[in-house]
Design a protein around this nucleic acid. Sequence first.
DNA 1: CAATAATCTGACCAACTGGTCAGACTATAT
DNA 2: ATATAGTCTGACCAGTTGGTCAGATTATTG
Lengths: 222, 222
Amino acid sequence: MKIEDVKAALEADKKYKAGKIREQNYKDIMDAATIVFAQHGFKGASMMAIANQAGLPKANIHYYFKSKSLLYAAVLEDTILQWNRSFDVTENDDPASVLETYIMSKVRLACEQPLPSKLFASEIIAGAPYLDEHIRTIMRKWYRHKVDVINSWIEQGKMQPVDAEHLIFMIWASSQHYGDFETQILKLLNKGEYDEADIVYIGRFVTEMILAGCGLTPSWKN
Amino acid sequence: MKIEDVKAALEADKKYKAGKIREQNYKDIMDAATIVFAQHGFKGASMMAIANQAGLPKANIHYYFKSKSLLYAAVLEDTILQWNRSFDVTENDDPASVLETYIMSKVRLACEQPLPSKLFASEIIAGAPYLDEHIRTIMRKWYRHKVDVINSWIEQGKMQPVDAEHLIFMIWASSQHYGDFETQILKLLNKGEYDEADIVYIGRFVTEMILAGCGLTPSWKN
DNA sequence: CAATAATCTGACCAACTGGTCAGACTATAT
DNA sequence: ATATAGTCTGACCAGTTGGTCAGATTATTG
């Protein structure tokens, strides 16, 4: 290897590392903020606590995010983006398999990543001051579409007549509960954390219960 | 009416009023604290905000409650007491009617008094620092007993075999959700608040769904 | 190498936090 | 009427809050 190549490699490495450091700090701050905001809500979280959690000086947090509100907004947006991935569905799909997939993934997400779930819950409990518009526009549209699809399934006789609006609420409630109330549930179950077996078991339980209410059967019971 | 009687009446009235004022202030503070703690959590709530909400000087709050922690503990205890009233049940009871009654009352409580539900949720999301012992002792005992009763129902063939532990979680989740996520739900339903018809409708929906999962039928479908 | 731009942070600020307390006010008892 | 006990609150305190900024440090460029 020539000297020039080593130099170039070091140069590239430096640039790479520099970029990585920024990226890493940004990510560290977001992660730390998620933890603190999820645990204490927007008002209860302090920039100092976030800085300590991230292992950075407080002023450095303000270099990346001008204000607490902007950091909170960034964390919330990130959470929302990560959340609304699945459940893309049309009226031609099979209700049982769609609902099954959605519920299983929601339960898994709640168990494996309870923090975003708790963050969202905190925001809603506080009256959704930051998500007010998001709920009334984007989420509402998403929600209405899903309700329409479910109702078309009912019209097609693919499932029993069930209130689609509250069916969705029930899916959200019974899956997110495992994230939001993780502390309570683990204490009552006398467990330290959810393991893979728990996640599958819970996912199947919730799926079976809700599908039964719709007159449907999950794939593993066929 | 004799003069003496008037005097006595005034005396009694004064005492009554004095007692009433104390009682009223205490209640006002508790109500105000419930609102603020439920909305912002323990750390996020400020004594000043509670004082303003109660319409009293801040120092007066500290006359009734020595510290923020003690006020929080009092509000939490009050909420817990008010919550665990119903669901006293034995293995000789009828599953369908017991579950139906419990679910309906939980949904009604969540819709009519969402604040205690939100307060409890905030505490759990924050990691249950104040309720840790309560959950591991009192709530745990309550929970285990209910699990045993449900399992005995299953052994007696009174209902389909269903995981009793997660059945209880599901009941809690799908009822409390209407209190904790009130803001989101009302926005999506485009409603200002739950009315009596909503409460009955939601209660019946949740009851039907969960009973169906247990192979049971609610009373209104017989 | 120098110059320029990006990144970092200790020290600071006004506003707010939970909490205290002396003294004012009010009610009851004698 | 006076004394006693209970109730109330403005003013204050030390510590924390979100946020700023000058200047140090580091990286990039020409």
